[in-house]
Write a protein that binds this DNA or RNA. Structure first.
Lengths: 178, 178
DNA sequence: GAAACCATGTAAGTTGTTACATGATTGG
DNA sequence: CCAATCATGTAACAACTTACATGGTTTC
């Protein structure tokens, strides 16, 4: 599913501006999707040009107009059509895991630090997602946020239980450099 | 980490041809990285041109020469340099989870089928990864394959325990179409 | 007073995929 | 006999990110 289609989908949940859609990507969707303004704004313009969205400009003083998008009936149909197609497979790309593959090339301290930071990141994500969960009504949104939480917790558990397997083989270089 | 750098890294583990590197991506790395021939072959050519790899063509009868790449000392340094930089954050993109966000727009049967297929996919991945695990010696490789297994297992557990939350809200459309 | 937030948009650049081009061999 | 495996490579295309362009407001 491309950004364009996801924007359309998010607008089935509520009317929103490009900026608010970006926030959505950074909050609820942050664990399994990303999008920058550079892809969101053009997507919204194009969808509007195609009649799948309408746009109402709310004049704001001393600021660019806030453009609130609303999905049209044609937009809803188009989105249902996209949803009906079998979902593609996940695309994952983890620098962290790629690095762990080469754990034995890293100085022990550096490796330990990377792992510690990873754990911190997971714990921070858990706190953020839990905070979001409080005012979520939609079952779908709750499901995916909880999924993210379960994933972060599983990752923490796995890493804590197994880090010794790679740390015991890491390079034992005494002096790091400076 | 881009494909280019990962190819370089894989060649720190053993000499390999482009074809074999592709296999590696489809096996050990399949859960958290992907790469097509269209990115691998040009990457290897470029790395060779830059002196980070050497290439030995093994003539094969009735087949294109098999080009076996080997990392050079300069290549090793370049890779260590890349490893030293802090890893970027994960990039995940899951069509499945995006679809689940809109579970209430889907006919109940379709939703149930998507979830069932997802579970099948996870179970198949577990079998494949377990098979790979048998002849793995490197601690790093073992760590990441086990990580994948833990992830698949956590996903199955989560989905089985929570699918009812979205399935009870799915559209109750009696006739699907045909 | 600096950083982050609000608010939109474009253009250039990166990175990668898909499809094409070629073709023998092996296993079911 | 059909599909998969082995084996390499290129060109066109897609999709997205980064950086630029602009500028007031709120929070620490």
């Amino acid at each position: 599913m491309d950004i364009r289609t996801l924007c359309l989908g998010l607008l089935t949940l509520r009317d929103a501006s490009g900026y608010e859609i970006k926030k959505s990507f950074e909050n609820d969707l942050s664990d399994f999707y990303e999008a920058s303004f550079g892809s969101i704004y053009p997507a919204l313009s194009k969808l509007t040009a195609e009649g799948l969205l309408t746009c109402t400009a709310q004049p704001q003083e001393k600021r660019p107009d806030k453009k609130v998008y609303r999905i049209t009936p044609a937009g809803r149909l188009a989105f249902l059509d996209a949803l009906a197609k079998p979902p593609g497979r996940d695309h994952v790309r983890s620098d962290f895991l790629a690095t762990m593959l080469f754990a034995d090339l890293l100085p022990a301290r550096h490796l330990a630090q990377l792992i510690d930071e990873r754990l911190v990141m997971h714990r921070r994500s858990i706190l953020e997602q839990r905070a979001l969960l409080k005012d979520v009504k939609s079952a779908g949104k709750r499901f995916i946020i909880d999924y993210g939480l379960a994933w972060h917790e599983a990752a923490i558990a796995y890493i804590e239980e197994n880090r010794h397997l790679i740390e015991s083989e890491a390079l034992l270089t005494p002096g790091g450099g400076s």
